[in-house]
Amino acid sequence: MSIEVKDIHFWYGKIKALDGINLNLPKGAIGLLGPNGAGKSTLIRILLGFLYPHRGEGRILGYDIKTQQHMIRRYVGYMPEDDCAIPGMDAVSFTCYLGELSGMPHQEAMKRAHEVLFYVGLEESRYRMLETYSRGMRQRLKLAQAIVHDPKLIFLDEPSSGLDPHGRKEILELIMDISSKKDIQVLISSHILSDIEATCSHVVILNKGRIVTEGEMNVLKQIRYNLYEMKIKGESAEYFRKLQEMQCKVDYLDDGIWKVYMPPEMNSQEIFRLAVEERVQIRYFMKSQTSLEDLFAKAVGIEG
C-alpha cells in the first residue's frame, strides 16, 4: 500500500478538521471527494508532510509522515489547484528547474523537461514565457512539473478546473494514461464528480473531517445501495414521506422522474406494496445505473 494513515486527527485551533481518518489505499487512481470544509485539503497537507497530525500516524510510500517529509516530497509529484508560476521563465526552464529541485541532475532534468512538455502537449510553446500562457496551458504545465521527476505518487488538486470541455478531456486522458502505469499512484482531489468517475478506480468521500465512504468505485456504486427511477401518478407527497420513513432517500430528477435510493436490505416489492396502500400508480419503474453523483449525494446527504 502506498498510502496508509491510521487514526489521523487534526485541529485548526478549536475546529476539528480531521477526525480519526483511517486509509489504506491501493495503487491506481484514487478520487478524493467531499464538500467544502470536508477536510480534503487538510488531508493532502498531511499526506504531503506539510502539516503534522495532532494524533495518529501514517506512511506514504513507506516513509513516515511525521519524520520523513523530505523523502515523501522527493518521490511525490504535486499539481496545485492555484495558478502558480515563476515569472521570467519559459516552460522548459521552469520544468527543468523544478526537476532539479527534486534532485535530478541539470542535464537530465533538461532532457526530461522537453519530454514531459511534449507529453502534455506543450511542445510548440515550450520556449514561450509563462506569463503569456493561457489557463489551459498553465494547467498542462502544472501537470508537467508534477511528473518531471517521475514520481511514484502524484497528488492532483482540481486538475481540470477552469478548462474548456476539450482541454478537460485532454487533461483527463493524460491522467488516465499516467495512472494506467501500474507503478504510479494518482490521488485526485476534485469537486467535479464526472472527472473522478472517469479517471478513478477507487474513491474516498470525506465529510466533516470523517470518511463517509471508501472503496472500489464499481463496488460502491452497485452494492452499497439500490437506485431506482420511477414515475408515479397520484398523491406523491405522502407516498414519498412514507418511503423516507423506511430509510429511503428520494430525489426529484426531471420530467416527472424520481430517484429512490433504497437500503440494500430492503426489498423493492416494498415500494409497490406502499404504492397500493397509498393508492398511487407507478407508471414507470426501473433499476438505475448509479453514478458517482448518486453515491456522493447519498453518502454526504445521509451522513450530513
Binding site: M71, R74, G77, D83, I86
Partner: peptide
C-alpha cells in the same frame, strides 16, 4: 515577493526543500 505573488512557494515546498 514574486514567489508570494505567483503562488510559487507551493512549488518550492512540494519539493525536498526545507
Amino acid at each position: 515577493s514574486d514567489d508570494l505573488k505567483y503562488n510559487a512557494l507551493q512549488l518550492y515546498f512540494s519539493r525536498p526543500l526545507s
